[in-house]
Nucleic acid binder design. Structure first.
Length: 105
DNA sequence: GTGTTGACCACAG
DNA sequence: GCTGTGGCCAACA
């Protein structure tokens, strides 16, 4: 049986996020089965062994804030703006750019 | 096996 | 509205 590690699922799930769309750490954690593992998700992305193959810059905080980025928060905002996402006061409208996993809106 | 760390989240003041 | 504290989870030393 192939039991993928927690971080492994995070990378796979995030890699499914299309451009111009974002998700939150809590959403990813919940999608993999750990609604309280939002910290573990951020931890997995922090190491980001699959960067830039994984669009980790599309993961933001539940507040809409960018959170952090291994390459620099400024780089994260720059990449997101290239995807067509508008950042207002350093925050993103989750109601507009939130991506739902395994479900089409 | 234990202790520390961390790109978080929610609640209280 | 912002700041501070507690709690949860997984990986690393």
């Amino acid at each position: 049986m192939t039991m993928k590690s927690f971080d492994q699922r995070v990378y796979e799930l995030i890699s499914r996020i299309p451009a111009g769309r974002v998700s939150t750490y809590a959403a990813v954690a919940a999608a993999i089965g750990c609604p309280r593992g939002s910290r573990a998700v951020g931890n997995a992305l922090n190491r980001n062994p699959f960067a830039p193959r994984v669009p980790c810059h599309r993961i933001i905080r539940s507040d809409g804030a960018l959170g952090g980025f291994a390459f620099g928060s400024a780089k994260k905002a720059f990449l997101l703006s290239q995807e067509g996402i508008v950042i207002a006061k350093g925050k993103i409208d989750l109601n507009r750019y939130r991506h739902v996993f395994k479900l089409k809106r």
